[in-house]
C-alpha cells in the first residue's frame, strides 16, 4: 500500500522538522528561563504560586520566564538533569538528587522556614493515638502512608525517624501496611478519611490546608512533631551564567531573596526567601545514605 510508505517518509520528515525547530529555538538570542517545582500538593495551588513567580522573575531579570508543570518528583529532577529547566523549587532530598546529578548546580535560596523544617505525624481520630513529645512508638502495627517516594518531609525524614525508633526494622516490617500517597494534600485526605491510620506530612502544607478549611480537626490531628531538618530550596543549573551572562546566578538569587509581595509568598507558605548554599543540605545526604535511598 503506497499510503503506508508515504506515511513512513512523512513521519521521518516530521521528526527532523521537530528536531529542527528545537535547534532553531536554541539559536535565539535569549532562550526563556524555564523552571519547575516538585508537585507536592494540590495542583491548583502550584499553578497559582508558580504563575506569580514567573511574572515576578520576568520583571526582575529581563528574560522570558516559563513554568513547566510536572506530574511527579522524579520528573522534576529529570527535567533539571536533562537541561529542560534551569531552575527548580525542590524539596530537600530531590534537591540533593538533582545537584548530585548536575555538577556545578547550586542551591541559592530557601524559605525562611526551610532552615528548620518539620514533619508532622498525623493520625485518624479512630486510631486512639494521642499527641506525644517523644516519637510515638504506638504507631507500630497501624496502617501508615508516606507522601511521595522522593519527598523529604513525607518520606525521607519520617523513614529515618522510624528506623531510629525501631532499630533494625524497615517501615514494611513496622507497620501493618505502608502506602505512598503521592503528595501531602492527598496524605491528609487519606488519613482524614481513615483509609490510613497514620501519615507523615509536610508541616507547611498541613498549615496551608488547615487555613484553607480542608482539614477536619475532629477526624485527624497532629500526634508528633519531628526534630528540624533543612528542606525546600531553589536550585539553579551551573550553566545559566553562560547562557544569560556572567553574574546571572547572583542576580537570580537577589531577585528571589528580594521577594516581599505576600501574594507570592503566601501560596508557598513562606514568610520570605533567604540565601542558602549546598552545604546546608549535607545532613540530608547522610540521612539518604542511611535509609538506602542514596548510594
Amino acid at each position: 500500500m503506497p499510503g503506508l510508505g508515504r506515511l513512513g517518509r512523512f513521519a521521518l520528515g516530521l521528526v527532523s522538522l521537530a528536531l529542527g525547530t528545537a535547534a532553531q529555538a536554541q539559536e535565539k538570542p535569549v532562550p526563556p528561563l524555564v523552571f519547575t517545582g516538585i508537585p507536592d500538593q494540590d495542583e491548583s495551588r502550584l499553578v497559582e504560586r508558580f504563575g506569580k513567580v514567573a511574572t515576578y522573575l520576568e520583571g526582575k531579570l529581563g528574560v522570558p520566564v516559563r513554568y513547566i508543570p510536572v506530574k511527579s518528583y522524579p520528573a522534576a529532577v529529570t527535567a533539571f538533569t536533562n537541561g529542560q529547566v534551569q531552575l527548580a523549587w525542590f524539596g530537600g532530598f530531590t534537591g540533593v538528587q538533582a545537584r548530585r546529578a548536575v555538577p556545578g548546580s547550586q542551591a541559592i535560596a530557601q524559605g525562611a522556614e526551610d532552615a528548620a523544617f518539620k514533619t508532622y505525624l498525623i493520625a485518624h481520630a479512630g486510631s486512639g493515638l494521642e499527641p506525644t513529645k517523644d516519637f510515638p512508638k504506638a504507631i507500630a502495627e497501624k496502617t501508615f502512608t508516606f507522601g511521595a517516594r522522593a519527598s523529604t518531609s513525607g518520606r525521607l525524614m519520617p523513614e529515618y525517624f522510624i528506623r531510629q525508633a525501631f532499630p533494625g526494622k524497615n517501615p514494611d516490617q513496622v507497620f501493618a501496611r505502608v502506602g505512598f500517597s503521592g503528595d501531602h494534600s492527598r496524605t491528609i485526605q487519606l488519613v482524614q478519611s481513615g483509609a490510613f491510620a497514620v501519615g507523615a506530612v509536610d508541616y507547611s502544607v498541613w498549615d496551608l490546608d488547615t487555613k484553607a478549611g480542608k482539614v477536619d480537626p475532629k477526624a485527624v490531628s497532629v500526634i508528633w512533631e519531628s526534630p528540624t531538618f533543612p528542606d525546600y530550596q531553589w536550585t539553579v543549573r551551573g550553566d545559566v551564567d553562560l547562557t544569560y551572562g556572567a553574574g546571572f546566578t547572583e542576580k537570580l538569587k537577589g531577585a528571589l531573596v528580594g521577594v516581599t509581595d505576600p501574594a507570592i509568598l503566601e501560596p508557598f507558605g513562606r514568610s520570605k526567601f533567604i540565601p542558602v548554599t549546598n552545604a546546608a543540605y549535607e545532613p540530608l545526604v547522610e540521612v539518604g545514605r542511611s535509609t538506602g535511598l542514596l548510594d
Binding site: 499510503g3 508515504r6 506515511l7 512523512f10 513521519a11 516530521l14 522538522l17 521537530a18 528536531l19 525547530t21 528545537a22 529555538a25 536554541q26 532562550p31 526563556p32 524555564v34 516559563r66 513547566i68 527535567a79 538533569t81 536533562n82 537541561g83 529542560q84 529547566v85 534551569q86
Partner: peptide, 25 residues
C-alpha cells in the same frame, strides 16, 4: 484523511517549553 492528519499533526504539536540538551543527555 490519513495524509491530512499526518500533515496537520506536526503543526498542532505543543510548543516546546525549554529544550533538553539532547546530545549531552
Amino acid at each position: 484523511t490519513v495524509p491530512l492528519l499526518l500533515a496537520a499533526a506536526p503543526l498542532a504539536l505543543p510548543p516546546a517549553i525549554g529544550n533538553a540538551a539532547i546530545s549531552a543527555s
